[in-house]
Amino acid sequence: MIEGLELRHHTAEQAAGHIDRLVELYLMVYADGGEFHSEDRYRRQLAGHMQRDGWDLVTATVDGELVGYIYGFPLPAETRWWAGIHEPIPAGFTDEDGKRTFAISELMVAPDWRRRGIAKSLHDELLAGRTQERATLLAEPDNTPAQAAYLSWGWQKVTKLRPGWEHAPTYDVLMKDVSRNNGEQGSPPSYWLG
């Protein structure tokens, strides 16, 4: 563990005063990300996501410096999260009720702080104690370090999805069983893969 590393959960209300710091780190991480990773689009995304019931942010700081964060929220019944999903998928795969799936929207660590276990610490802290059955996230197929990390943390690729945001890339859809929350890696339930 990094000396001085502090992980802290924030509700949307608690995070409201830290938006500029969150955006600043996002822009540093995605400096070469093109139009999709623009400040304006990310501020709109963040504002929309923070309105979701159960939104949870975990920040990582070292001596007060924001070095990384992760956030997500349970998918409501009327979610647009699955819009743009590639077929085929198992029947009922995208059915949501607000309690079935926790979606991780962002996980990032400042470039100078990578490969020190911060991303894994953030990931584990956010998912610890979840009451949902499963978690999902979208990963860029060519982001080899992130893909390798997710697979080593027990995530499984299921299909692809292209969100409705303008200039959005096509992502890999990853799923993880969090119903046990015991940290063990295992095979995904059969209905994930058909």
Rank of each mutant, 00 (worst) to 15 (best):
H10F: 10
H10C: 05
H10P: 01
T11C: 09
T11R: 05
T11M: 08
A12L: 11
A12V: 13
A12R: 12
E13C: 03
E13N: 06
Q14L: 07
Q14T: 11
A15E: 05
A15R: 13
A15S: 12
A15D: 10
A15I: 09
A16M: 11
G17L: 07
G17A: 15
G17Q: 13
G17H: 13
G17S: 14
G17N: 12
H18R: 14
H18L: 12
H18I: 00
H18W: 04
H18V: 03
H18Y: 08
I19C: 04
I19G: 00
D20K: 02
D20L: 02
D20N: 06
D20A: 04
D20T: 05
D20Y: 01
D20M: 01
R21E: 15
R21G: 08
R21D: 15
R21I: 05
R21A: 15
R21V: 08
R21Q: 14
R21W: 02
R21S: 12
L22S: 09
L22M: 15
V23Q: 08
V23S: 09
V23C: 09
V23P: 07
V23D: 02
V23K: 05
V23H: 07
V23M: 08
V23R: 04
E24D: 15
E24T: 10
E24F: 07
E24C: 09
E24N: 13
E24R: 08
L25Y: 02
L25K: 04
L25G: 08
L25Q: 03
L25F: 01
L25C: 03
Y26E: 04
Y26G: 00
Y26T: 05
Y26M: 01
L27K: 13
L27I: 10
L27F: 03
L27T: 11
L27V: 10
M28E: 12
M28P: 01
M28Q: 04
M28G: 01
M28H: 02
V29I: 01
V29Q: 01
Y30L: 09
Y30H: 14
Y30W: 14
Y30Q: 09
Y30D: 06
Y30R: 11
A31Y: 02
A31M: 00
A31R: 06
A31W: 00
A31F: 00
A31Q: 04
A31S: 09
D32K: 09
D32S: 10
G33A: 14
G33Y: 06
G33R: 12
G33T: 13
G33E: 12
G33Q: 13
G34Y: 02
G34P: 07
G34V: 10
G34H: 07
G34D: 05
G34S: 10
E35S: 14
E35G: 13
E35D: 15
E35W: 06
F36D: 11
F36T: 12
F36E: 12
F36G: 13
F36W: 13
H37R: 14
H37N: 15
H37K: 11
H37L: 06
H37W: 09
H37Y: 13
H37V: 03
H37M: 09
S38K: 03
S38I: 02
S38C: 05
S38V: 04
S38P: 03
S38Y: 02
S38Q: 06
S38H: 05
E39Q: 15
E39T: 12
E39Y: 06
E39A: 15
E39P: 11
E39H: 07
E39N: 11
E39C: 14
D40G: 06
R41N: 14
R41I: 11
R41F: 04
R41V: 08
R41Q: 15
Y42S: 07
R43W: 04
R43Y: 05
R44N: 01
R44H: 02
R44M: 09
